[in-house]
Amino acid sequence: EPLWIRPDAPSRCTWQLGRPASESPHHHTAPAKSPKILPDILKKIGDTPMVRINKIGKKFGLKCELLAKCEFFNAGGSVKDRISLRMIEDAERDGTLKPGDTIIEPTSGNTGIGLALAAAVRGYRCIIVMPEKMSSEKVDVLRALGAEIVRTPTNARFDSPESHVGVAWRLKNEIPNSHILDQYRNASNPLAHYDTTADEILQQCDGKLDMLVASVGTGGTITGIARKLKEKCPGCRIIGVDPEGSILAEPEELNQTEQTTYEVEGIGYDFIPTVLDRTVVDKWFKSNDEEAFTFARMLIAQEGLLCGGSAGSTVAVAVKAAQELQEGQRCVVILPDSVRNYMTKFLSDRWMLQKGFLKEEDLTEKKPWWWHLRVQELGLSAPLTVLPTITCGHTIEILREKGFDQAPVVDEAGVILGMVTLGNMLSSLLAGKVQPSDQVGKVIYKQFKQIRLTDTLGRLSHILEMDHFALVVHEQIQYHSTGKSSQRQMVFGVVTAIDLLNFVAAQERDQK
């Protein structure tokens, strides 16, 4: 057995438009009618409502009807409940999964919650491996369901041993009777949507819809739904939504950006999952974080739909894509998950301010006199920076000697690579993860907040409520011999709460 199987392995699926269902090699399930009293909570997966979006479509000038398939009504709160249950049931049916076995899954959280929910009911041990950027709410729900959680670096490539995929496979090879159901490759993922989600949409719309818009992560949702719609409703256009920084969209030119990270969760990847059939997507749109969270908040405030950030991405694209539809036509959007997962993220004004998705003037509360002053007023001194090749031991000596707790790590040209902190280095040394002679590049981390000289002290204040420091950066445009230009970030300084307090105190003292 291989040590790991690539999540982007070539698909062996034989589905073709027009091929009889009787030739399918898979076990198919028909939607079942729910009894009045459910035998367990797993029976509350599927049969989610279709809700008309009344205000947002009109606000953006849509002539067509805009409908939302509300997947956050599933038992675990997301569309991923469907595939989690289906993968477990299919693994039980073919004898792969037996009582007492362990389920391991690399996930952005929602599939993990679905699997942990099913594992709690069915009696399996469950280990979820997820990147650090995923919300604390997801972690809390997983723990409450009895799952064990392993976190991995957000910026690790999918084929790196440190990625959530790599760590999951390492655990599988170490733990007896453990299984990775593997949402990236498992046919049960798109089949769950082909058999149930798509049929529900067709039934709820009486077979009449002209466009379907869905955000894409593993691709199982859009693949399964689109294949069924292509068979039953061939005139329906399928629109895929991919965040900026991901590479799922086609044509490839759409993916060209210097951005590699994004805040919206559960969609987009740096590889093409095996289950994603991009041939059934008629057109791709890219979405960005700001519009995703703005539209998610709009869905909550104006439509009462308590959905997550990827739902915002989907609707932001839908109001663009559906401009081509006329009166009497219908566009369906998939709202994948609930706001429950993001209470401390985009639902929080403070978080939105820190990330730059909300401006101070958007909030009406009274601010102190210094709130709208610029960061450049602080008069920061030149920063202490270190090269990635310097040793951890030497870096600790320098920081202690100069009285700093942290320093930016830059390359020879001064471009920011990340940050090192005294606390992080000492804990890594004590844990045996690094040696004093190791290069400081081994303990770089990139989960820090950046701020510009033109940003306000109010925004800085919000950042420092949650973080010990902020890195002050400025952009530099560099022209190359080819005539092309590129933008790079340079370090201007490091600012802490002490710097802000000293500035405010000094100004008030001078005024007296």
Rank of each mutant, 00 (worst) to 15 (best):
V339F: 07
E258S: 08
K402V: 12
Y269G: 01
T395V: 10
Q435R: 09
I334P: 01
V319A: 12
K355I: 05
Q476V: 07
V440T: 01
L378T: 01
W369S: 01
G240T: 04
K484A: 01
D242F: 01
V241K: 01
Y269M: 01
T395Y: 15
G304L: 05
L325S: 01
Q447S: 08
Y342L: 05
T364F: 09
K484I: 13
N288F: 08
S313V: 11
Q487I: 11
T260L: 01
L276T: 12
L335T: 01
L347W: 01
Q487V: 11
V280Y: 13
D438C: 09
V332P: 05
L378W: 04
V375T: 03
R278C: 04
A382C: 04
D270F: 04
I477F: 11
S481A: 14
F295P: 13
T314L: 01
L373V: 12
R488I: 15
G414V: 10
H480Y: 10
E508F: 12
N288T: 01
L471V: 13
V420P: 01
T257E: 01
K359I: 13
V333T: 14
L384G: 08
H468W: 05
A322P: 01
D405M: 06
G493Y: 13
H394G: 01
G403D: 14
E365F: 08
Q487F: 13
L254D: 01
D438S: 10
P436T: 15
W351I: 01
F346W: 03
E377S: 10
P436N: 01
I267G: 04
Y269P: 04
Y269A: 01
P388V: 10
G403N: 01
L501F: 08
K283L: 09
A505E: 14
T257I: 08
Y445T: 15
F448Y: 13
E365G: 11
Q302E: 06
Q406P: 01
K286I: 01
A311S: 13
Q329N: 07
L380S: 10
D405W: 14
H394A: 01
A296N: 04
G458A: 15
A321F: 07
M466Y: 14
V410N: 10
L457W: 01
E397C: 07
L399F: 13
L426T: 15
E327F: 08
E412N: 07
T456D: 12
S287C: 12
V409T: 14
P251T: 13
E361R: 15
L363V: 08
Q302Y: 08
P243L: 03
Y269C: 01
L399D: 01
G304C: 05
I444K: 01
D242W: 03
P408S: 07
T260W: 14
S427H: 09
T454A: 01
L399C: 09
T257L: 11
H394I: 01
T389F: 15
D282N: 13
Q259L: 13
Q439P: 08
Q406T: 10
L417D: 09
R452W: 15
Q323G: 11
E252M: 11
P243S: 08
P368M: 06
F293G: 01
Q447I: 10
L471S: 07
F285R: 03
I477Y: 15
S461M: 13
P251S: 09
V410M: 11
T456F: 12
F293N: 01
F285D: 11
I267R: 01
D289L: 01
T385S: 06
M298V: 15
G483M: 13
A413Q: 12
V409W: 01
E397H: 15
Q329V: 05
I300Y: 06
V275A: 10
L335Q: 12
L399K: 01
I416T: 08
A249E: 07
H468L: 12
Q511L: 09
F404Y: 09
L430M: 08
L378I: 01
T260I: 09
D411K: 15
V375C: 09
T385D: 01
G309L: 01
V333P: 07
G308I: 03
Y479V: 11
L430F: 13
L335D: 04
L387P: 14
T389A: 01
K402G: 13
F285K: 01
T454L: 07
G379V: 11
S437W: 15
Q476C: 08
T274Y: 03
Y445M: 06
D467S: 10
Q489W: 10
L422S: 09
D411Y: 10
T261F: 15
A470G: 08
Q487W: 09
R374G: 10
Y479I: 10
F295W: 13
V281M: 15
F357A: 01
